[in-house]
Amino acid sequence: MSIEIKGITKQFGAFKALNDISLDVNSGELLALLGPSGCGKTTLLRVIAGLETADAGQILFHGNDATQTHVRERQVGFVFQHYALFRHMTVFENVAFGLRVRPKSTRPSDAEIKRRVHELLDLVQLDWLADRYPAQLSGGQRQRIALARALAVEPKVLLLDEPFGALDTQVRKELRRWLRRLHDEMHITSVFVTHDQEEALEVADRIVVMNKGQIEQIGTPEQVYDTPASPFVYQFLGDVNLFHSRVHEGWAEVAGQRFAAPEGKGALVYVRPHEIDLTRDAIDHAIAGQIAHIRLLGATVRLEVTVPDSEAVEVELVREQYQQNQWRVGEKVYLTPKNAQVYTDFSI
């Protein structure tokens, strides 16, 4: 089922959490709302669910206006960041809850409920935990139960609020792959909120990057990563080096390097740390600098290079490349950006 969001605005006191948001979620896709904390992504998710009412705007489910529909009747599945499992009920009863509270006329029989719950517990691979209480489960298990509970009512739309936010890295990576596989099997329209760009890039079909209550860019992971629409998106999707420059006859110059730039006054030149070549020999237009720090980060190595008239530049090398060249702290080096993104007349 598709979701249309039209001109949603929401204010908390003087704080504008959502400012005229419009967005279409296609049927069957997995969409990520990505942004820093306080950007309004969770509020938007809660407005879609009906847990929050918008000050203005409309929410349409499959073309039907659902703005005034109570959260109870919206038929959405919602997964909370901190699971919100019913602590006094067993895992089985948690998953069965949505079926048990139905009015008598539509409530399945006990046998049917039992069958459905075990089917869902099988789906999340936790059938053996049916008689446990939430306090007895690990974080990852709890989140999978929360997902099974949300799916039990056969929702038309699945909404996940920072579903892996409270888990440690290892479990998180495992779970997000699992979620992707699950989505590929079920094809239920899903929206999930995250502040982790890696998570969004890995899992989502499309990403909506939000900042300060507004949408910065909507696109596939490749689109937002390769052609960021604004300096904010560029910065948010990975580590960056920033150079301030001025545009002169279509070129922005940074320490002798020239970048093609649209006309404008000030220019911001962004270069990703892994898109910089490092040499010992002076090359034309290369930026001269000195290695200040070297940090080993597992498969990659990060070097901090001090450059005159600019902030220190971060360079990321793969381990092999680093070992071949035997870079040392204090050495003089030359930097050549292989790729850069230039924005003119943007303020950050």
């Binding site: 669910a49 847990l51 959260v71 109870r72 009747e73 959405v76 599945g77 919602f78 909370f80 901190h82 919100a84 499992l85 019913f86 602590r87 809850f97 949505g98 509270v101 139905r102 509970r149 949300a150 039990a152 009512v153």
Partner: peptide
Amino acid sequence: SDEEQAALVLGASGLQTFWRV
């Protein structure tokens, strides 16, 4: 009130939420 919200999303009425959660 997370658990109450979860109950509402799952379709429980206000009274059901109170008695059961």
